[in-house]
Simulated assay, not measured.
Amino acid sequence: MNLPEQSLAFILADNGYDVWIANSRGTRFSRGHTSLKPIEPDYWDWTWDELLAYDLSATFQLVHDQTGQNLHYVGHSLGTLIALAAFSQEKLLNMLRSAALLSPIAYLNHLPSPLARALLFIAQDLYWLGVYEFAPRGGQAVNKLLEDFCSTPGINCSDIVTPITGPNCCLNSSVTNEFLEYEPQSTATKNLIHLEQMARTGTIAMYDYGNENDNMDHYGQPTPPVYNMASIPNDVPLFLSYGGKDYLSDVEDVQVLLENLKDHDGDKLVVQYIDEYAHADFILGVNANRIVYDPLMAFFKIN
C-alpha cells in the first residue's frame, strides 16, 4: 500500500533477502481446504493454537525445504503471538536464524482498545448462536454489533482504524481508505474466544474448553497447558519493537513479556520503544523504514 521504499517486504527484497509472505487461514486469500468448505462449521473449528501447531510449522518447513536455509522471521500482531508461543515450546528453532516481532502480542490483560474488547467479549454469544465465521465484512451479526458500538456516545467511527489500533501517528491518509478495502479479514469466532480468554485471565494458555472433562479429553489435564514465555531459550535472537499509543499491544502487557525475558542473553535481545507509534504504524507508517526497518535490517545482518 505504501511506496516500495517504505514497505518492508520490498526493502528486504532489495537487500537480497528471499521474501515469503504467509496469509492466515480464513482470510479471503487463504480459504482453501482439502475437504471442507467455508460454509461448514468444521472449517472454522480452530484458534491460534492450530495456527501455531500446523500453519506456522508448515510455513517454516516449506521455506526451509525450498531454500535450504534457516529463516529470519518477521511477525506483526497475531504473527508475534504464534511465534513466541512456538519458541516457548522450543519449536521451529532448528530452522530459525532470528525473529523480529513488531507490536508484540503475548499478554492481553490490559487491551485498551474499546472496540477490540467489545468484539472479543461478544464472541462467545456469536458462537452459541451458530456464527462460526467471524466476518467483519458482510456478516450480519458483526455488522449489527459495529452499528451498536458506533452509536455509543463519544465513539467516532468515521475513522474505524483508531478505535482498534490506537491513534496512529504516521499513516498516509490516502492509505487508510485503501487499508479498509482489505481489512479486517475473517477469522474463526472460536479464535476470538481464545483471545478473550487471554484478556480475561491475563495468561497465555491453550484454548479452554470450559470444563475439566473436555480439557482432559483434549490435553490429558483439567486445565489448558500454559505457554511459558520464560521458557524461550536465552540465545534466540529477538528484535522487539513496540509503541506507546498501541491499543492492542499495550505497553504494560509488553512489560510483562519483557519481564519473562529478563534472563535473555544481552546480545540476543534488541528492544525498541517508539512513543508515538500505534499498532498500524509498524506496517504502514511512512517513516517506519527509517525508524523501525533500518534497525531491523541491522539486526538481521548480525544474526
Rank of each mutant, 00 (worst) to 15 (best):
L111Y: 06
Y73V: 10
I164E: 03
M95N: 03
D217M: 12
W48P: 01
N168G: 02
M198F: 12
D159R: 07
V236G: 02
Y17S: 07
S241M: 01
M95K: 11
N289M: 00
E196C: 10
N143C: 07
V236P: 00
N172I: 02
G243P: 03
G166M: 03
D148V: 13
Q185P: 00
F299D: 00
Q66I: 04
A141F: 12
Y43S: 04
A278T: 07
F134M: 07
G244P: 03
L248K: 08
F60V: 01
R137M: 13
N228W: 03
D45E: 13
Q140T: 12
S241K: 00
K268F: 06
W20H: 09
S88C: 03
L296S: 05
G139Y: 04
L269P: 04
W46N: 08
L78Y: 01
S7W: 11
G26F: 10
G26S: 08
I232S: 00
L261R: 05
H218Q: 14
L3E: 12
Q89Y: 09
A85I: 08
L56R: 06
L51R: 00
Y227K: 00
E183P: 02
I160S: 14
M216A: 00
V286N: 10
V74M: 05
L71Q: 07
V271M: 06
Y73N: 02
W128V: 12
S98M: 08
G166A: 08
D217P: 01
V161L: 15
G154Y: 07
G75Q: 08
E252C: 12
D267K: 12
G26W: 04
C170A: 11
D281W: 09
Y227R: 07
E252S: 14
Q6E: 15
T223L: 14
A22I: 04
D214I: 11
I39D: 15
E276L: 12
N191Q: 14
S174V: 11
Y227M: 02
L12F: 13
A199N: 11
V142Y: 09
R200L: 14
V161P: 01
S186M: 09
L119N: 04
D281N: 04
I291L: 14
D253Q: 07
E90L: 01
I21V: 15
K37H: 13
N2C: 05
A86Y: 09
A58K: 00
G79D: 02
V19F: 11
N168H: 10
I232N: 01
R117K: 14
N215K: 10
F29W: 14
E276M: 13
G285Q: 06
D14E: 15
Y247H: 13
L180Y: 11
Q124N: 13
A9K: 09
L180P: 04
C170P: 05
